[in-house]
Nucleic acid binder design. Structure first.
Lengths: 332, 332
DNA sequence: ATTGTTGATTAGAGCGCTCTAATTTGGAGC
DNA sequence: GCTCCAAATTAGAGCGCTCTAATCAACAAT
């Protein structure tokens, strides 16, 4: 059960502990003969360096703290995939906590992550109070992903939600729609940006914006669609939903009401999660490059961790439209 | 940037380092007066213990290593949620790596996790060679989740796939089906168990099993359905799919072929992922209690980590049927 | 005052490693 | 053989903490 230490390897190889350390770190200033001896001894003992001891002694860390608001949401899971990919390549490990969008719990989670003195901290769509983020950013590189924020020393990675919303509107206008309603994502900054983008795009086409308050869930989409139907008056011919699950909720309600999609009404989602690609759903949607966002975040942290200092970047990735089967010219 | 150490707190509070250590660990044998002094000093300096130093000195760890084959799959993400919940409650943190079902890469990932000397290791649906798992199990508590395995000293948490498959078949037979085809999940042990469960259940009802080789993906479901249609002869009236995404793939193909679900053909999924609950999909499926599986795994690790020794458990959780709208009596 | 006794506090070693500075080695050059 | 020098190796301190054993304080009992 007790694993061998560097001391054991040194004894077996007939060298000093320091030499074993050099070999383990791949130092070039070790003679070939000794290196082999050490490597052999290590292999015989099945030795592997103790990452924590190493970290403590070298005052460096190969840990990246990650706080995910909701792992269960595939959107974040795919960002974590991107983080993981870069972390692996750069020799870092992810230490993950979830926050569940509860500020108190998220503060605690951040504190626990920081107690490991990680090399950097990534917050994915988290609701941690800005003041705490700022505090953390004084001690280590921090990057906030999928939540627009301007906090001193804090890097961000977001998609250009304004552009994304415009892509959706432009596409619908292109195929002939003029009455386009937006189901929004609620009170978050991200939702506000998309909503503003939608409104600006509508006005640019000389059209009247029409927003129904909603949220980033399946049920939210159902309710918003129901409200739209109850509202009376002329129905829009297209809907720009808050995100993919919201769109799928709307799809359900429209189907129940006997409305055909896309013939009676077109629907555009947002995120391009795996969900939208299912042929059964085939949702036209705005792609957010999630893996890329995760990669950018990880690279930013690694870079700043290694460079000692370095100013945080605010990255805006470019969304793109993916046209599937839920949009078509309006029936005239 | 340099965080205060226990030494700093001790100096400020006018006590020894050891006393600060006791206070930080909530020891009862500290006078109230000193405790307050230490707590105040710690607060003033914004001190927080260094988890790695603590871990090194105490020869214990509050890290649980987690290897996820595919985080992007919501099934695993929800298991991680369960792990995270228990870990948080018990004062542990998760250190996560993904393996992508590539045995070589997974071996490496396990090695990296072990270099942190975690208190336990959870493998979620991973493809790590059994020999490596056995090796790891010699050094620390290991639990394999969602992958039936019998390895010395290794705990497991799985659902009873045989029962799950039977639930699906029984339900279909109950509502009147007799020609029921299974799209299987390929070569994995889990898939074999479900396949055997399906076949046994069919025979128990005096029916002939009929399996089409498939896999745990959307595309796999589409292909299997296509093969079924091309095969000619009388079509089955129901399909037990490998899992939810496989079922959704089948749904798409059936829709394209003009087959109505559930009127022309019933479909049952497996897993009860969020996907199946979408009203647009409303898939009848077998629920695997994923969060519970994660919780059980975490608890098993924590228990064994704290108990020193302790024999690994093999837990079998009970799946249950969730009837939605893709199953109905066959048309006669 | 002296002696116990119990509870509170601390000294000091050590966890497994890295890092700096010092020492040793092995030739090259004479 | 001897000197010098660069390359190879090592001694030893120290990272921030915990743990054991020893010391100290306070107070009741004699």
């Amino acid at each position: 059960m007790a694993r061998p230490t560097m001391e054991d390897v040194a004894a077996r190889a007939g060298v000093s502990r320091a030499l074993v350390s050099l070999v383990m770190r791949g130092s070039p200033k070790v003679s070939e003969r000794r290196r082999q001896a050490v490597l052999d001894a290590a292999a015989e003992l099945d030795y592997a360096p103790h990452a924590m001891a190493r970290s403590l002694a070298s005052r460096t860390s190969t840990l990246l703290g990650v706080l995910v608001s909701d792992l269960h949401n595939p959107f974040f899971a795919e960002i974590v995939d991107g983080l993981d990919e870069v972390a692996r390549a750069e020799g870092f490990e992810l230490i993950i906590n979830t926050g569940g969008l509860d500020p108190e719990r998220e503060r605690d989670a951040v504190g626990r992550l920081l107690s490991f003195r990680p090399a950097g901290l990534a917050l994915l769509g988290a609701a941690v109070p800005s003041a705490d983020i700022a505090d953390a950013a004084r001690r280590l590189p921090v990057v906030v992903v999928a939540r627009p924020a301007r906090i001193a020393r804090v890097g961000t990675v977001n998609d250009d939600g304004r552009l994304g919303a415009r892509l959706a509107v432009d596409h619908l206008v292109d195929v002939g729609h003029t009455r386009i309603t937006h189901f929004d994502g609620g009170r978050t900054t991200e939702a506000r940006i998309r909503r503003d983008g939608y409104a600006a795009a509508m006005r640019a086409h000389g059209l009247e914006p029409d927003v129904i308050r909603s949220e980033y869930t399946d049920a939210g989409g159902e309710k918003a669609a129901a409200r739209l139907l109850e509202r009376g008056g002329e129905l829009p011919t297209a809907v720009v939903a808050a995100n993919d699950v919201n769109a799928v909720g709307a799809l359900s309600t429209f189907a129940d009401a006997g409305l055909a999609v896309p013939d009676d009404i077109s629907v555009v989602g947002y995120d391009n999660t795996a969900l939208s690609a299912l042929r059964r759903i085939a949702l036209t949607t705005v792609d957010q490059p999630r893996a890329e966002m995760g990669q950018l975040a990880a690279r930013a942290l690694v870079r700043r961790a290694q460079a000692g200092r370095g100013k945080p970047e605010r990255r805006l990735v470019t969304p793109s439209l993916v046209v599937r089967s839920t949009t078509a010219p309006p029936r005239r």
